[in-house]
């Protein structure tokens, strides 16, 4: 049903692009001077996906919130409200106050900084390591491929979160440790995926042609293979943003993430746990923030995957 609709619109748009009253020569010229770039195609597909657009707008607002957090928060996140510990949500304190009388709403706002920055930096790390190893493995093949992939297998065998908290705890918990440790323990899936994509693209004729005319390997990788795997890399990175945020808040929840007084959503949940029986707002709102953020990133990631490849080449 939904597909039929999409096809219909696509046909209409295709019809619009072909001018009816012009000569064939002029038509050809138009087509050749204005080819639709992949970015345009993806954007056109993405715009039609309402859920993905909603997720995208939410993500955009989140980044803006994080950027302007100190200005948006009604109170300083460390400010005390004397004599008002554990007050329920009110017009004055939208999400109530915590045991130390601080405004929970302000802390949730400022907490977005931790989650989004950890997400961004650790995903950059994951992608740097994953793409490099996957690309080398897929392109070079042979013994290097074998060694890298077996190492990946071993890393995957150690339960991810256990590895993560071991590393986070042993290397003194902090925001920076969290970013680095998530990056160093989460690249394996990306490496496998990129390797597979490189193997697929490497087997295509244009790579053979490039080789035949003597293009050096480094140039083949950068100019031919990487651009052709970009779609997969972007989708994978978006989905990892949400997963990295889940990992970060999990670490913070166990007390192994960003340390006080820096407010993080996971840390706020851990603090609020103590008073859960009489102050539900401390555990409900920060958790809701994590949930909605992860959901929004997932919507964008799924939307991007469909937009890059409406036929869904990969299952």
């Amino acid at each position: 049903m939904a597909n039929a609709q999409v096809d219909e619109t696509r046909r209409e748009q295709a019809a619009e692009r072909i001018p009816s009253s012009t000569s064939p020569a002029r038509h050809l010229q138009q087509v050749s001077t204005k080819p639709e770039s992949q970015v345009q195609i993806v954007w056109r597909n993405l715009r039609r996906n309402r859920l993905a657009m909603a997720g995208g707008i939410f993500v955009l607002l989140l980044y803006l919130t994080a950027l302007f957090a100190p200005a948006l928060a009604p109170q300083d996140y460390t400010a005390f409200n004397r004599g008002q510990p554990l007050k329920p949500p009110s017009s004055e304190h939208w999400f109530g106050t915590d045991r130390q009388t601080r405004d929970v709403f302000s802390r949730v706002i400022v907490g977005s900084r931790v989650s989004l920055s950890v997400g961004f930096i650790s995903v950059t790390l994951i992608m740097l390591i994953g793409v490099t190893l996957g690309a080398l493995s897929g392109f070079l093949g042979g013994i290097i491929d074998n060694l890298v992939m077996r190492f990946t297998d071993i890393m995957l065998a150690i339960p991810g979160f256990f590895l993560l908290i071991t590393a986070a705890a042993l290397f003194t918990p902090s925001l920076r440790t969290t970013m680095i440790v998530i990056g160093l323990t989460s690249w394996m899936g990306a490496a496998r995926l990129i390797r597979g994509e490189f193997l697929r693209v490497k087997a295509q004729d244009f790579v053979l042609a490039a080789r035949a005319i003597g293009v050096p390997n480094s140039r083949i990788i950068i100019r031919h293979l990487l651009p052709n795997t970009m779609a997969v890399i972007i989708v994978e990175a978006t989905l990892w943003l949400s997963y990295a945020i889940l990992l970060e808040s999990g670490l913070a929840f166990l007390g192994l993430g960003a340390q006080p007084p820096t407010p993080s959503w996971g840390g706020m949940l851990a603090d609020g746990r103590v008073d859960m029986q009489n102050a539900w707002w401390q555990t409900v709102f920060p958790g809701l923030a994590i949930f909605l953020t992860v959901l929004a990133f997932n919507l964008v990631g799924d939307g991007l995957r469909d937009a890059f490849d409406p036929r869904q080449r990969r299952r």
């Binding site: 949400s242 889940l246 999990g250 929840f253 949930f291």
Partner: peptide, 16 residues
């Protein structure tokens, strides 16, 4: 929705 749900938060909400 289930994929986006943090397990520690789900645990707390169920307890609550």
């Amino acid at each position: 929705l289930g994929l986006a749900l943090p397990d520690f938060w789900l645990a707390l909400m169920l307890q609550l």
